[in-house]
């Protein structure tokens, strides 16, 4: 039991929260980066290798496209269906191989990215599927290569849903980042477990909840703002008057 009236309690709390927040932001930040770098191409390939898709026949081979699609589908479904707490433990040998240890915030990035990549890939798939096939056709009629279609049409035209999907992904990475605290992954999750749970400090618990809430709220606000910024579809009411009706 921690005594809040003891000398040095508040500076200590502040120090612990600061370190915990830093670790959380660090592991979430790097995990998000890895997730985007791997999940975005994965999601695009997931849509592209479907029947009638852009990469339906990679290197001119239709069976190859079908195989790639099946494998990706399998991997994504597998990654999404294993509960995180099990995945985290099951990945320990892999994490050791990549990072050299399975303890600490850096090691926690591996399971966080592994769980987030399939999740984000699905979000990418959904966003890309929303793009009107007529736009792809228009780009093809202009002589675009497949990569040009991805870079100039599919990704820019689905930017808003991609940003919102990423924000959902980041929220769940933050969620999972608290869980790695139970296996010495550091971060705010570990603060909540070590102080709030094991040492019955309600103040630590409440502080962690508030901090995580603030992080998620700020993230969500930023994502919504960015998504609106990049959406040129439905204009808000203020500019409706400026929309011309003449030919």
């Amino acid at each position: 039991m921690i005594d809040p009236t003891a000398p040095g309690f508040w500076p200590g709390l502040f120090q612990v929260l600061l370190v915990g927040t830093g670790e959380t932001l660090y592991m979430v930040g790097v995990a998000v980066l890895v997730t985007v770098l791997v999940g975005l191409p994965l999601g695009i390939l997931l849509v592209g290798t479907e029947r009638g898709g852009l990469f339906e026949a990679p290197f001119g081979s239709r069976p190859l496209g079908r195989v790639v699609n099946r494998v990706l589908e399998f991997v994504v479904n597998l990654g999404r269906s294993v509960p995180f707490i099990i995945l985290m433990v099951a990945l320990i040998p892999f994490t050791r191989l990549v990072i050299g240890t399975f303890i600490g915030s850096t090691a926690a990035i591996v399971p966080l990215a592994v769980v987030a990549i399939p999740f984000f890939a699905r979000m990418v798939e959904i966003a890309i599927k929303e793009v009107d096939s007529g736009l792809v056709e228009a780009a093809e009629s202009l002589g675009a290569t497949r990569w040009q279609i991805v870079a100039k049409v599919l990704v820019p035209e689905s930017l808003s849903p991609l940003i919102l999907g990423l924000s959902t992904t980041v929220t769940s990475i933050i969620n999972f980042s608290a869980m790695v605290g139970t296996v010495a992954g550091g971060g705010l999750g570990q603060v909540a477990i070590q102080y709030g749970y094991q040492r019955y400090s309600t103040i630590h618990m409440v502080a962690v909840i508030i901090l995580i809430f603030i992080i998620v709220m700020m993230l969500q606000g930023l994502a919504t703002w960015l998504a609106r910024r990049f959406s040129h579809r439905a204009r808000p009411a203020r500019s409706r008057a400026a929309v011309p009706t003449a030919i």
Partner: peptide, 18 residues
């Protein structure tokens, strides 16, 4: 390359919204 010399317009315009 040949398609670049053939312009095409569409019923639903197919303009990039962004």
């Amino acid at each position: 390359l040949a398609r670049r010399k053939i312009g095409m317009v569409f019923q639903h315009f197919n303009l990039l919204a962004g």
